[in-house]
Nucleic acid binder design. Structure first.
Lengths: 220, 220
DNA sequence: ACTCATTCTTGAACACGTTCAAAAAATTTC
DNA sequence: GAAATTTTTTGAACGTGTTCAAGAATGAGT
């Protein structure tokens, strides 16, 4: 088994993530990581082709943790608003230790070329995992959501989650209180807004929105 | 008159923007700008404290142009959907020459510390100018929009515009066709969606959305 | 045990954005 | 106009992410 190799890789990743948390992204230089881990700079690059890939490591880890705690928080919660709250709040929870570093993360993640870009090909797995959380949030709430919406809803909610994450990055209130408030306010509103889809006049607009989303998504 | 000094400043800015357009952001190094402009690197830094500030220069210029062409495109258009389309399409028009460079721009702009961050203090003037465009788009369309929405609508539309810009950055279809399609589809939908505010059951949800926006915006 | 190939590790080197002490040029003061 | 002051300009230097040729360690086959 490639024990030694994997060990070095983990060591570098662990040291890097620890330093990200403790002193931030920019101050965590590749040289500092290497020194702290007791390896050469080039060796760190043997395992991670760029500093961005270390961010990807963080991204995956945070995502995994989110899946666990979200599943836990969803237990016993039935209504869509509550389930949405659970998923969003736990999402913010797992990101919390990295808040000061959030803006650098977003700046890294937002470039199409980045392995961490949430829309990109390189993070398909992570995105799927995240989408799955929202799918389970939607599927667990029995009647509230109109049939035709069920299919696209998880993806739309995930997109909204990206928006919340962006808001969170800019949120300088202590403990990111404002983000919490946004979640608490927006989740019931989304649920109520969706229930409006039953009103005839509104239903048509919903249809068109979904049509547009599908249309734009499939390029053509 | 500080002719000489201003001349150097303009020269550096012009060369930089030209290179941004022609070879992209990353390949346009400060050394290359200086060389092309016939000044020293340090001299470029005398006028622009960072490469980001050169991006800010671009941002302001694009914004100014948007104000001009949008005002032109709004002439004679009455309905909200049409006016929204006009503003959004012209917005994409003025950004077009910089599309390949868009992702770098966004990555720069998104960090809270950046002078170009659209939400930040350093770009208040530019944001106000952009907001004014949306304000005039809303105010020019007579009856369609409910009173209570008028006040906040420009800001919300501006926010949506930021979303469109983000979409545009990722849009790799030729000529950013998909973004055009998104605008054409979304503008009428927004207008129709807003007209739903008259329906009693819907109106309540709209009120709550506005309440949430205001609540979250004012921190507290 | 001895080759040979593969995997892992090293540290010097590169180009980049940025800084800064010092020089040059322009301007103001007398 | 000379001296003093301010504005502008220079280029070497720093620390950064990243690359790469070269060497060391490991493992496979005989």
């Amino acid at each position: 088994m490639a024990a030694k190799s994997e060990q070095t890789r983990q060591l570098v990743a662990d040291v890097a993530l620890k330093m990200f948390r403790e002193i931030g992204f920019e101050k965590t230089t590749m040289r500092a990581i290497a020194q702290e881990a007791g390896v050469s700079v080039g060796n760190a690059y043997y395992y991670f082709a760029s500093k961005d890939e270390l961010v990807q490591e963080l991204y995956i880890q945070v995502q995994d943790e989110h899946a666990v705690v979200a599943a836990q928080a969803l237990e016993g919660v039935q209504d869509l608003a509550g389930r949405l709250k659970a998923v969003l709040h736990t999402g913010v929870d797992v990101m919390a230790p990295y808040h000061q570093f959030g803006s650098d993360f977003i700046a890294t993640a937002i470039r199409p070329s980045s392995p961490v870009n949430p829309f990109g090909a390189a993070s398909t797995a992570a995105r799927e995992a995240s989408l799955a959380i929202f799918r389970s949030a939607v599927e667990g709430s029995p009647p509230a959501v109109a049939k035709k919406l069920r299919g696209d809803l998880p993806e739309l909610l995930w997109l909204a989650y990206m928006g919340v994450a962006l808001f969170w990055v800019y949120d300088q209130s202590e403990g990111q209180r404002r983000t919490r408030k946004l979640i608490d306010g927006a989740a019931p509103l989304v649920a109520r807004g969706l229930s409006l889809a039953k009103i005839p006049g509104v239903s048509k607009v919903f249809d068109d929105v979904l049509g547009l989303v599908r249309n734009v998504k499939e390029d053509s």
